[in-house]
C-alpha cells in the first residue's frame, strides 16, 4: 500500500529541489520546521520520533536539507516527514506536514473486525510494522 498522509502523497515523490521550495515557504511564513521519523505510521500514532527539536531560529532551507540528509542516512527504511509549526496566537499548531521518505516496502495495516451485540462491529487498525517484536540486527 502507499501511505497517503500529508500534503503531497498523491503526487510523485518530491525531489530535493521541490522539498527545498516547500521548506522555504514555511520559513517565509515564520514557521519552525521539524523533521520526524517512524516505522509505524498508524493514523493515530501522533508522536513520531523527533529528529532533534524544531529548528526555531533557522532562516535558510539549506539547513533543513542538511538535517534531512542526515536523518535519511540513519533511517532510510522508515517514513520521514517534514512539519512546520506556527506558534502564533490562535493557531499554535502544525501548518504543514508532508512525507519526504518512505520505506522500500510499505507494510500497511490490518483491519480487525470484532463482532458485538446488535450487529455492531468493533474496528481495530493494526500496523503490520508493529505486529511482531523487532528482530535483533
Amino acid at each position: 500500500m502507499k501511505l497517503t498522509q500529508g500534503q503531497f502523497s498523491f503526487l510523485p515523490d518530491l525531489s530535493d529541489a521541490e522539498i527545498t521550495l516547500q521548506v522555504q515557504y514555511a520559513l517565509e511564513n515564520g514557521w519552525a520546521v521539524a523533521i520526524e521519523h517512524t516505522s509505524d505510521p498508524h493514523p493515530r500514532n501522533v508522536y513520531w520520533n523527533m529528529w532533534g527539536n524544531p529548528m526555531f531560529d533557522l532562516r535558510d532551507a539549506a539547513g533543513v536539507m542538511m538535517e534531512l540528509k542526515a536523518c535519511r542516512a540513519e533511517h532510510n527504511d522508515e517514513y520521514i516527514k517534514i512539519i512546520a509549526f506556527d506558534s502564533r496566537k490562535g493557531w499554535e499548531s502544525v501548518r504543514m506536514s508532508f512525507i519526504v521518505n518512505r520505506p522500500a516496502f510499505e507494510p500497511g495495516f490490518e483491519l480487525v473486525r470484532t463482532e458485538g451485540p446488535g450487529r455492531n462491529l468493533g474496528y481495530q487498525l493494526r500496523s503490520f510494522a508493529t505486529s511482531r517484536p523487532p528482530v535483533a540486527p
Binding site: T4, Q5, P43, G108, F109, L111, L125
Partner: peptide, 10 residues
Amino acid sequence: NKAQAETGEV
C-alpha cells in the same frame, strides 16, 4: 474504517 486501513489516513 476500511478506507482508513487502506490509506493510513484519518
